[in-house]
Nucleic acid binder design. Structure first.
Length: 448
RNA sequence: GUGGUUGUAGCUCAGUUGGUUAGAGCGCUGGAUUGUGAUUCCAGAGGUCGCCGGUUCGAACCCGGUCUUCCACCCCA
């Protein structure tokens, strides 16, 4: 049988894992610096926890886990005979793989509300699964790095999370644009246009402005049943790229003005950042549960015009995610980094630091069996003193062992033959410069 | 979920109208060099041509199905 991988999943080689860890470590240390605490939840959740939280499209993309045992025997014969998947599904599957980290977090907060101090700030770096059709930058299994805070509606957190986004990307040396909008402004826009009930249709259409242009958006709006007068009102909004230009248009909408005031406050609270922060009225974001400020981060198109990649981080405020699970109604706000896309972009732009190689200090090479015994003893001493050290496990030809050292990326090798074993002075070769010197055991091992 | 695209050595890819033994570069193994890798020279190994079926005297090549890759939708990180 030929080995294979499920579609949309990948293996990682050691150097790839190191580079991924570089991203995870950078993000994690910022999370810690901002006072977020780690939590963990299972990769599987009850389907009832997951369904209905991501819209119709999201439900379709959930990976379902088959029930154990005779799962078909317990299913209804009529439903089975009619091949009605929607009817059969709840009878044969009660669990699914998590689709993101936010909904499981909401479930977690409700279940542990009496053990947590609010506002509760947590982070999680973990894989999630979506049964999407894979493309580049789009996988069926991928990592998210989330920071959320629940139990406070303070706008300070929106500002803090924007700073956090900025800090992480400047630590990664990647120029980005952080775009902000508010669901309240979008709701206000729908209200002004006289289609309060069509907010979703309207936002989906205007979200495509970049891609299909003004005419395309007009067409899409009309197709979605928005009347011509409303369309021209909406197009007025799209012509603005400044919060203060949008504000007068929203004067008649209470919720819209609330959104404007909130964004104003957030923008003035943020202070100086390395990356640009822009208000973007066309920013929509699909996830159903967002109710306030929304974020999206993209690679800076001015700095890297050739990079084609969707958003690499995003997030927003949600007013009542915990309410769905019957808990106290706790407001929350959070952000999520897409580690895989960040990886692909850093790779494409060659922005990974050089030293994400093997972190070995020494590799010991022994030329005969007595030297090998000697080397194994030296190995233990080096390791005890905190040197990352490895040894070639047999006495072999030096050329062969040197080649192995080269492939391992070992920065230094210690050559041990009968001369060295007898004298306790070793030949240490620097693999980069090619220089070698004779070093006494005490000086090599060092003391602590 | 819809439409398209891709698959040949470990990797990147050639392969003529369907015709003898499917090639190259890189990588790998061994040697030149029995105590020196990354450079040089020589030699060698490595293939169910994604998989299943069909057409044909004959299929890497044509046809059907399937899996996979990537792309455009949809949606999203």
């Amino acid at each position: 049988m030929k080995p294979s991988l499920p579609k949309g999943t990948r293996d990682f080689l050691p150097h790839e894992v190191r580079r991924r860890n570089y991203i995870f470590d950078t993000i994690r240390s910022s999370f810690h610096r901002y006072g977020y605490q780690p939590i963990e939840t299972p990769v599987m959740e009850n389907l009832s926890t997951l369904t209905g939280k991501y819209g119709e499209e999201g439900d379709r993309l959930l990976f379902k886990v088959l029930n154990n045992g005779d799962f078909l025997g317990k299913a209804d014969d009529q439903d089975l005979a009619s091949k009605d998947s929607n009817a059969v599904l709840p009878q044969i599957s009660k669990r699914g793989l998590r689709y993101d980290l936010t909904v499981p977090f909401a479930r977690y907060v409700v279940m542990h509300q009496n053990e947590l101090a609010f506002p509760f700030k947590r982070y999680a770096i973990a894989p999630v699964w979506r049964a999407d059709r894979p493309q580049k930058g789009r996988y069926n299994e991928f990592y998210q790095c989330d920071a959320d805070v629940v139990g406070s509606d303070s706008l300070l957190y929106e500002a803090e999370l924007t700073q956090l986004l900025d800090e992480v990307f400047s630590a990664l040396n990647l120029g980005v644009v952080i775009r902000l909008n508010s669901r309240k402004i979008l709701a206000g826009l729908a209200e002004i246009a006289g289609h309060e009930d069509r907010m979703l249709d309207i936002t989906i259409a205007i979200d495509k402005l970049d891609k299909i242009g003004e005419e395309g958006v007009k067409k899409e709006l009309l197709e979605r049943g928005v009347d011509a007068e409303a369309v021209s009102t909406i197009m007025q909004f799209l012509a603005t790229d400044d919060l203060e230009a949008v504000a007068p248009l929203l004067e008649r909408s209470e919720i819209g003005m609330q959104g404007v005031r909130e964004l104003r406050e957030i923008l003035t609270t943020i202070g100086f950042l390395v990356n640009r922060v822009e208000f973007d009225v066309t920013l929509a974001r699909g996830l159903d549960y967002y109710t306030g400020c929304i974020y999206e981060v993209a690679v800076d198109p001015e700095e890297y015009p050739d990079v084609v990649m969707g958003s690499i981080a995003g997030g927003g405020r949600y007013a009542d995610l915990t309410g769905i699970f019957g808990g106290r109604d706790l407001p929350g706000v959070g952000i999520s980094f897409g580690a895989e896309r960040i990886y692909d972009v850093l790779e494409e732009l060659n922005l990974f630091p050089k030293d994400t190689n093997d972190d070995l200090d020494y590799l010991l090479l022994c030329l005969d069996d007595e030297s090998l015994a000697h080397g194994f003893d030296l190995l233990r001493d080096l390791r005890r003193q905190g040197h990352n050290t490895d040894i070639y496990p047999t006495a072999a030809k030096l050329g062969k062992m040197m080649k192995y050292a080269d492939q391992r990326g070992a920065p230094r090798v210690v050559i041990i033959g009968s001369r060295e074993a007898a004298s306790g002075e070793y030949t240490v070769k620097d693999m980069r410069t090619g220089e070698q010197e004779v070093v006494e055991r005490l000086r090599l091992v060092g003391t602590t």
